[in-house]
Structure formats: structure tokens, C-alpha cells
Amino acid sequence: MDCRLTVAQTNPALGNVGRNLEEHVAAIEAAIAGGSQLIVFPELSLTGYFLKDQTAEVALSLDSPELARLKELSRRISIAVGFVEHASDGRIYNSVAFLEDGHTLHVHRKVHLVTYGMFDEMREFAAGSGFHSFASKHGRFGIMICEDVWHVSSGYQHFLDGVDAMLIPSCSPGRGIDHASTELGSERMWRTLLEAHGLLFQTWVVYCNRVGWEDGIFFWGGSRVIDPFGAQSAGLDGLETGRLDARITSHELRRARVATPLLRDSKPWILAQGLARIGNGRGA
């Protein structure tokens, strides 16, 4: 694997799919011109986040003209795009589509819908049912959307599946200004989470968070790429729109996995036994 990628830290207009689509096209054209092979957009990048009753109004089916336009562009660059998916059975999902060579190669539907504090996703969306990695021509990828990352079982499945990179589109609101911290509380948590994923799962971690304000709530940006040793290899300043170009290769994956062969030594059957025991005995 040797993939040049672009992380698009955008500021979507709330519920304005037409305007957001034009901005996607412009960002994609710029990434193609810059020689990128893959571009990753934030969670719900075509719609904005706090949609409430707009959710159903901006939902797109996989064969919508909007996605068709992006599919066409995917002949020149692979694209991970966030949108509200209107499934054929009528359910509405918080989804990321991975488009490549004019086709929808994979769709990940957010599994862990965040419904506490300021969030109300389970009111708006049906939950996805699993984590499935897929083979892109640029490498094996696994997608997690924002809150998915907070559940270690998500990343562990991609790890067992041998992904080269975890793609993490996100709409993480900024919060936590106490204790005189120069870093927002939300950024501190995410930095720890992302670096831990790189370190524990020895994979590239590509985090794409949006920026901008929706009714007084801001998204803190801070998009970054973490290497398979758990260290940040590239990052954008938070708070402003921007484009992060990075390169992810097999060399670092090999070095990390030879030095510390965590996948070889992992014993998922022990987890399976444990889950059977805990599931039978203690609920959850």
C-alpha cells in the first residue's frame, strides 16, 4: 500500500445538500489536481449535523443523482462521503459511502448512535448492524463514524480483519474549557482515543472532523492522521476549514507489526468465550 490521501475539513451548510455537493466537487477536483488518490469527508458532510426534523427531508438513496455525481468523480479519486441514507426499506441511517471507480464499493452505517447530553441520534436514525472492512485498490480499509470509535469492539473487529487504515469521519462538537487547558476537553479525549487506536491496532488512523457552528455549537476540527505506532504523522489546526494531504504506506505497518506482533498474538476466541460467558451470566 502506498496511498496519497486528502482529508477535507469542511464546514457544511445545515440541510443544504445542493451547496454542500458543490463544495464537495470543488474539494475533490482540488485533491485530484494535487495528486491524491483518496479523499475523506466528515460525518454527514453532505447535510450538516443537527438536522432534527430535516433528517428525513435531506435523506438520499444510494442511487440518488447527488451520489451519482460523486460516483462519476470516483473514477478519478476514491471518495468517502457522509450523508443521510434513505434505505430501500424506508429506514434512515447516518452513513458513509466509499465510492471508487464509478461504483459504491462499501457503505458503513453508524452503529453506535450517540444519544445523550446534546445528542439525539437514536431519535433520527436507525443503527447500523456491523463493521465490515473492504478492499479498496489503495488498501484494506475499515470505516467507523465518530461515536463508533468509543466502543473498542468496533476497532478490534477491523484489527482482526487486518485493515491497513481506519477511516473515521466525525462531527465532534467542541466542549470543555475549564482547568485553564490550552486544548479543549473534547480534543484531549479524541487525541487519546485516536492515538490508542493506532497503537493498539497497529494501523493507520485517518480522522476527519468538521468545523463550523450550528446554533451555538461548534465542531472543533483537528483532523489528523495517526501512524501504526500511535503517533500523529500529520494534522490540521482545529476550528478552520482546511485540507490535509498525507501519505500512508505499508512500510510503517510492516515495521510496527514486526516489532510488536499484536495481531499474531491476539486470541479472539478467548474474547468469544468471554462474551458467551458474560452474555449468558450478566446480561449486557
Binding site: 475549564d178 485553564a180 446554533d215 476550528l239
Partner: peptide, 21 residues
């Protein structure tokens, strides 16, 4: 105090909030 803020960070956020909203 736990209530203390990093003033330059909060200034940046609130200026952006005013402009954008």
C-alpha cells in the same frame, strides 16, 4: 481554580461564534 480558562482559546472561539452565527 478548576473554573480557570485559557483566555486566548476562548477569545478565538467566541470571535468565530459571533462572525459565523
Amino acid at each position: 481554580s478548576a473554573l480557570d480558562i485559557h483566555a486566548p482559546l476562548v477569545e478565538r472561539l467566541l470571535v468565530q461564534f459571533l462572525r459565523e452565527e
